[in-house]
Structure formats: structure tokens, C-alpha cells
Write a protein that binds this DNA or RNA. Structure first.
Lengths: 107, 107
DNA sequence: TTGTTTTATCGTAATATTGCAATATAAAAA
DNA sequence: TTTTTATATTGCAATATTACGATAAAACAA
């Protein structure tokens, strides 16, 4: 095969897996980090920041957008990207929950 | 192509991407969740918990082990798997840092 | 209008992932 | 020893991902 057996798992499990898949590439990690260093959300120069061709970056941005990790709004000719705090908080809470449960364990 | 341009990014960016890649499949999310529900670390029945064949689960466990998300120690015939709190904390801190930086932003 | 700039999409080649049957390995039980 | 039980590895087919050249689309400038 090659396709994940998505149907065999819960909606929540698939959601979390999709969030992590969106973050499972160094270019997308770099994009998130870059968005954090920029003061405002007004961007448009991500292509110059990364050692990848423009179509490749556009594709990575699309995946981050589909996963709701970033938001993009049209700003004239350019597009303004910024991180989605809700999704970041969602992931943060997920691991906070895991960390909390782990404290009551033998590990 | 198809291979990631790993060399173009920092060691840290690749490390984080690999951690997330290990968590980017619902079966591996399910394994992590199952390990959280078990009282002790003494496991050995993960195969019966998931709707996947034994070789498939063994492969998923291997990926989680390679990413240091779980630890496995031989326990006679069975193998005892448990979560690695250090790695969980590492991811938790990563998002805590992002969340903190986001608070000083326009988003 | 035409040209410029910025981002998106298409098409495709190279590579990676997923899943499992078959088989192997390792440790304990009989 | 042989058998049983639990986990790992191999090999392969189906599918997904990654990267980018070529091209398109959208908004503004001249």
C-alpha cells in the first residue's frame, strides 16, 4: 500500500497527525521560525529567506495554511502571512496534557 | 526530486522536523496515547490494541524509538515500551517558546 | 493597454512512506 | 531438544511527498 489507514483511527488522532505532518519538514519549521522573528505580520519576502525555489515555498505555505498553522490574507500584490495562535495553543495543550499524565507514571 | 533538502537547514530545524515526522501518523499518535493509559510501562500488547498487522506496528514502534519518543527495554519474551519524558518535554518547551513569542505580536 | 511584481498551479521526476505476507530471531515453556 | 510466544526484518506493491521548470493568475504601475 502506501496510504495510511485513516479510517481505522479517531478524528482527533488524524487531526493531531495532520498537524504534525504539516510541521514535519525543515523548510516548514524554518517558515514558522521566520514568521516568529518578523515584527509584524506583513511579510512577502519568505522566498528570499529560504534556499528553495518559489513554487516549492508556495507549496509549503499551502500545507501550513491547510493545517491552519498559518493564516494568509491578501495585501495588494503581496500576501500577508502570520501564525495562527489558536493552532499553536492547541498543540501546546496537547503536550502539556501528555507531560502532566507522564508525571504520574513510573518513567 | 522527492528527498528533502536537509543540508539547507540547521541541525535544530531538522531535529524538530524529525520529531514531528515521527508523530505524523495516526497509528503512532494512537500508540503514544495507549502508552499514556497504561499504568506501568510493562506493555507487550500493543498489537492487540491497534487495527494493524504486527509487522506494521513493529515498524511504527521502530520509528518512535528512533525519534527517541519511546524507550524499549527487553523484558524476557516481551518488550517493555514507555514514553521518553525528556523528548516530550523538549516538544512541550518548543511550543511554549513559540506561544510566548506570539504573545508579543499583532496576531 | 502593456509591463512588472508577486503568488499559485500544473506537470513530472526522484524519493519516501505505508502496509503486510513471509520469514527470521530470541527467549521461555514443555 | 522441540514448541510456543513475542518481536524484528525483508521484500514488494501502492501511494504520498518533495522539488522545480514552465506557466498562469492577480494586482498594480506606467
Amino acid at each position: 500500500m502506501g496510504a495510511s489507514k485513516t479510517d481505522s483511527f479517531s478524528v482527533e488522532q488524524n487531526e493531531m497527525a495532520n498537524l504534525f505532518k504539516a510541521l514535519s519538514h525543515p523548510a516548514r519549521i524554518a517558515i514558522v521560525e521566520y514568521l516568529l522573528t518578523v515584527d509584524s505580520c506583513i511579510c512577502g519576502d519568505i522566498v528570499n529567506e529560504l534556499p528553495l525555489a518559489q513554487p516549492t515555498i508556495s507549496q509549503h505555505l499551502k500545507e501550513l495554511k491547510n493545517a491552519n498553522i498559518i493564516k494568509g490574507t491578501v495585501e495588494g500584490t503581496a500576501i500577508c502571512y502570520c501564525l495562527n495562535p489558536d493552532t499553536i495553543a492547541k498543540i501546546e495543550n496537547h503536550f502539556g496534557m501528555i507531560g502532566h499524565k507522564l508525571k504520574n507514571k513510573c518513567c
